[in-house]
Amino acid sequence: MKQKNSLPAVFLTPAMGILAVLALVPTAYAIYISFQNRELSRPDGNLIGFANYIDLFSDRRFINAIGVSLTWEAVTVGMTLLIAVGLGILLFECVSPRTRNLLTLLFLVPVILPRVSAAFVWKFAFHPLYGIATYPYKAITGQPLDLLSNPATALATVALVDVWQWGLFFAVIVLKLLETLPPQPFEAARLDHARTWEIYAFIALPMLKAPLISLAFVKMIESLRAFDLIYVMTRGGPGIATETLDMYAFSQGFIESGRISYASSMAVLMMIATSIAFTFIWKRVQ
């Protein structure tokens, strides 16, 4: 019995050891240098306590980045799930199984595209002079449509690309989940003259609650890593209208200032905020 009990530890120890080195060491180092005033051009730094953290809260770009990041999370997660569920149900209800398979294949293409490639493709598509996506507007009104240069529309336009990649992919997952549900509850509801929307709202979706929550979590984590998409399409602009926290931290660390301690303090705050938020949401869901 004793030998059997020690087996998990034998398998877990190397993996946990590697994880500790790969994850904990950089994290601990980031926390350490966040209390310093190190810059890339000056390798020596002094401990300055919480000065970087205090400075962050009087930094308008940091405050703006918090707002942009929260908006980005809410819009991309919400819209992705909405489109996934809507499209998944539409495919399940209205499309023959044969066509479904073909559409499933097509819906997988956007997510297979590397993020940077998708960003470039859409950046050109949204170009006000040559873009295929803006061409109909230009043809009808005679005026160019510059969505990525307009602070009011830039974030939504980039979010559209994110939703295009993930919403279609999640729609395929929702479709496959619907196909796995037992038909009896649906038949019973139809016998009781339930309308189609009622069948999905009160039977199908509640039955899919657990996988849908998992999808929401996956998308929340994925949306936090949208750096490449935003970087290619707008670089945080116009101005700072699409500058998320990770982009601002990268700018401070490597593009503009080389203030790696200041950038690290942002990264540490992001890590703490994300951990608390996810733990809270996870517990609420459970």
């Binding site: 602070p151 602009g237 116009p238 101005g239 700072i240 700018s251 593009i255 503009e256 080389g258």
Partner: peptide
């Protein structure tokens, strides 16, 4: 100056805000 990229990039952001009407 070694600080030029930092200063220039900061002005670049403010200037872009002025161009696009955020300020």
């Amino acid at each position: 100056s070694p600080q030029w990229p930092d200063l220039g990039d900061r002005w670049g952001i403010i200037l872009e805000e002025l161009i696009t009407g955020t300020r």
